[in-house]
Amino acid sequence: MTKMIEGQGVWLYAVTRDADPAALGELTGVSAETPRFIEAAGLAAVVGDVPLSSFGEEALHRNFEDLDWLGAVARAHDSVIVALIDRGPAIPMRLATVYHDDDRVRHLLESRAAEFARALDQVTGRTEWGVKIFLAPAPDPSSDAGGPSPRGAGAAYLARRRAALDSREHQERCAAEQADRAHRLLAALAVDATTHPPQSRALAGEDARMILNGAYLVDHEHTLRFAEAAAACDQDNDAIRVRLTGPWPPYSFSVLEEP
């Protein structure tokens, strides 16, 4: 039976295998609605009924410019997904995936059942971890400059500038090499790995420049070993700083782009 109410859309949170009502508990969604299941092709989509006045295409375009609104919606979306993943594997859908009615969601499940099945197999028993690598502060070359230059203040200034540039370039080359080694080491400990564009300083909450933004899909039983390896990468490399984040829902390894 199709559920279609004028002025309402169907917000898609995630896809899982089992429509277990206990997994949703007393959760509320992005519009303070109670999430529910839509089943088809042996899969269960977790959805919520949302007003198109706030969650339709035009409204979302407008509301996404309100960072407070966007932050609240993102947290509510993620809370539903986390609750599902606490009980079993689930495919988290990207923010603002909205359909006009239940039949459109059923069609998605039926037409892409094989893709969802493969993705669910991929994330079963695994968690996503993030590793952000930042450029460490450069040493002050003036500390090695010695006494006053006999060539005068101007020449001394130019020498310090050149030393600073050379030091920075050397540090950035070392940092890139160290970050690459760290990524390869951590990827070898994961089932799958990928990288995202580095975040801005404001978004990352760091003064230092991010040079690698990695995501790693790790078996539950290997989580401790992975965390220890990330900590060792931070301690063993002087040109970079390594920050481990997570665990997260496996967004980086289970996202299916909408057709």
Rank of each mutant, 00 (worst) to 15 (best):
L186E: 06
M4P: 00
D234Q: 06
A163C: 05
R62E: 12
I211F: 01
I240T: 10
R126N: 09
A179C: 09
R126Q: 13
F226S: 10
A90G: 11
R241Y: 01
L158E: 09
E110N: 07
G214T: 00
S167G: 08
A239L: 06
R243S: 06
D236R: 11
R173C: 01
E110Y: 00
C174Q: 13
H183R: 11
E65M: 14
K132H: 08
Y251E: 08
E257Y: 04
L24G: 12
S53C: 02
S142K: 04
I91Q: 10
F253S: 11
G154R: 14
A204H: 12
A145I: 11
T195A: 14
D192N: 13
P197E: 14
V98Q: 06
F64D: 05
N63V: 08
E26I: 00
E39N: 03
G146Q: 03
V80R: 02
L52E: 09
G130H: 07
D86P: 11
W129K: 15
E128V: 03
G56Y: 11
A41K: 03
T194L: 08
F134E: 01
M210L: 08
P198S: 09
R161W: 06
E257L: 09
D234A: 12
L60D: 00
P250R: 06
A117D: 15
I85L: 15
A155K: 12
Y251H: 14
A119G: 05
R201V: 09
N237Y: 06
I91M: 08
F134Q: 09
E169C: 05
P137V: 00
E39D: 02
G146K: 07
A215R: 15
A164W: 04
L43S: 04
F134G: 04
A113K: 04
H77F: 12
F64E: 08
L60R: 14
E257I: 00
V10M: 15
T2P: 05
V73K: 13
G147Y: 00
A232G: 06
L108P: 00
T245F: 00
R112C: 04
V15L: 03
D66G: 09
H183I: 02
V46A: 10
V218W: 08
G25D: 03
I133Y: 03
G125N: 03
